[in-house]
Amino acid sequence: MIETYYASAYWGARKESPEDCGQRAEVMFNELRTIASDFSHWLKQGRSRNEALKHSIEADRATLTKMFRRGKDRMFEDLGFRLNGWNGADDHEASSFNIRAGLYAERIVNACVFYLPNAGPDNKEGPNAQRVLTATVLSELVRAMAVAWEPEWAIAASNSYEDLLPKPQLTRRLGWVTYYSDQVGRVPPLPAPVRMERIDDKGTLLVLTPERFTATNPEHVALANRVGELLDRAGLLGPPLP
């Protein structure tokens, strides 16, 4: 089975300008450069691969502000701004991102989503996936999103494990790496081998296992289920804040 992974952060209605979004994105991209080479260089998406490879994204505040302004919804102001890009790697070895920010419409969330390298059709991983899909890299990726966007929650997770969960995708849930803002509540004591870390005065980062979390490992699934029950009792799982 090919197990795929992603990382994302979510927050509720927050009216922000393109300048605000550009500043937050600059903070995030500056942090990403230090995490892995996969996150050090980004390209605009184009109509073809060759076209996209010609257009780098300069991740400074002024450039990012202009890109967010161009990504404004042309019909509805309250739908905020969009920005997306990728790192130019081949096929399943690529990383890409999609940001929707400055949105303040009801029943729609702001989000920063990273699609990560994974195994190819032959179920073999290349060097990019092996480098990125580690607890160290993904916890730093989630931390960068948490610091920059101040989300309600953020996650790095296995899609295969999430397929086992009964709750809808946009509810707060638990992943291999998870961040909960203090806005949603305090994280209770959790069993080993879960690692907990405070992120400034903003919230708490959890890492379930130091090795790669997989849905095919019954010990990993049992641990996630146990931790999930404790978080649910503490009110950390469930629908977004109003």
Rank of each mutant, 00 (worst) to 15 (best):
W176Y: 11
A52D: 09
L165P: 01
I35T: 10
I35Q: 06
A52C: 08
L237V: 07
V137S: 02
P151I: 01
N84M: 12
R47G: 15
I2V: 12
L190G: 14
A234R: 07
P189G: 02
N123H: 11
Q45C: 02
G80C: 03
T4W: 03
T204Y: 03
G175C: 11
P127F: 08
R233M: 02
V221E: 03
R226G: 09
W42M: 04
A36I: 00
K202I: 13
I199T: 03
A105C: 04
D200N: 12
E150Y: 05
Y6M: 09
N118V: 13
G71C: 02
F114T: 01
D163I: 02
Y6E: 14
S56E: 15
W42P: 03
A129F: 03
P242Y: 00
R131L: 11
Y6W: 14
N159I: 11
L208V: 10
A146L: 07
E58H: 13
S17A: 05
P191Y: 05
N159V: 10
L223R: 09
E51W: 07
A101C: 05
G235N: 12
E125F: 04
N30H: 14
H220F: 07
L133A: 03
R74Y: 06
A234C: 08
E211F: 02
G88A: 08
K124V: 07
S158I: 11
G228T: 06
N123D: 14
M75G: 09
L79K: 04
M67A: 12
M75E: 10
A36W: 00
K66T: 08
E219V: 06
S96Y: 11
W153Q: 04
A13E: 06
G88S: 07
P117Q: 00
E140K: 14
S96T: 08
D78I: 01
K66P: 00
R49D: 13
P166E: 15
F76Q: 10
M1C: 01
E93Q: 14
R33H: 13
A25N: 00
T136E: 15
M196Q: 15
Y5W: 08
K202V: 04
H55G: 00
D163Q: 14
L236F: 02
N87W: 02
L170I: 11
R61M: 12
A157Q: 11
G235K: 10
F76G: 01
P166W: 04
D201P: 00
E140R: 14
Q183D: 12
Y10Q: 07
A224L: 10
P240Y: 03
I108Y: 07
M75W: 10
E31N: 08
W86S: 05
L138R: 01
N217V: 06
L230D: 02
E150H: 14
V142C: 06
L138M: 15
R173H: 15
V221H: 05
Y10I: 02
T216I: 09
D90S: 11
V113F: 11
G102V: 01
Y179D: 01
R49K: 15
